[in-house]
């Protein structure tokens, strides 16, 4: 397990140029077939969106991958996020982490995932075992 100290950071590009294929793959894996995420007509007519957008939980899963790639597959004891902006086809997402506290073998990590315009789409906090 990684040794972490306050101020440590990590950053990675999680997905480039999201396509409908990425979104549909997540729909199939999660079982979430809300048409807003795969049917442009439904997204426009049911809810007035310009088209389909990715599941919030897809962005959370990507953000989680940044953390497990860095810290190990099951280092997280807590992972909480807010979805701050929708993710659209064509977006490129970068996830960033910063250790804000380490106590009793548990690191608190601030996480943010941003799109290609630097707007945050996911903001949250994780706790991870450091030993």
């Amino acid at each position: 397990m990684a040794e972490l100290k306050v101020g440590d950071t990590h950053e990675a590009v999680m997905v480039e140029n999201i396509t409908r294929t990425h979104i549909v793959k997540y729909a199939g894996a999660s079982g979430d077939f809300n048409p807003l995420h795969h049917d442009d007509e439904a997204a426009k007519n049911m809810a007035g969106y310009p088209g389909v957008f990715a599941h919030g939980m897809y962005s959370m899963g990507l953000t989680g991958r940044m953390l497990t790639d860095w810290l190990g597959p099951t280092a997280l004891t807590n992972f909480g996020v807010r979805f701050t902006k929708q993710v659209w086809p064509g977006d490129t997402l970068t996830s960033r982490a910063e250790v804000t506290d380490v106590q009793d073998g548990i690191a608190t990590i601030k996480v943010v995932t941003v799109n290609q315009d630097g707007e945050s789409v996911v903001e949250g906090e994780a706790k991870a075992k450091t030993d």
Binding site: M57, N78, R82
Partner: peptide, 16 residues
């Protein structure tokens, strides 16, 4: 209120 958004999710893990 027809539109639904996922506002956020938090998961606490107590074991693998």
């Amino acid at each position: 209120l027809k539109r639904i958004l996922n506002g956020g999710t938090e998961i606490e893990h107590f074991d693998d």
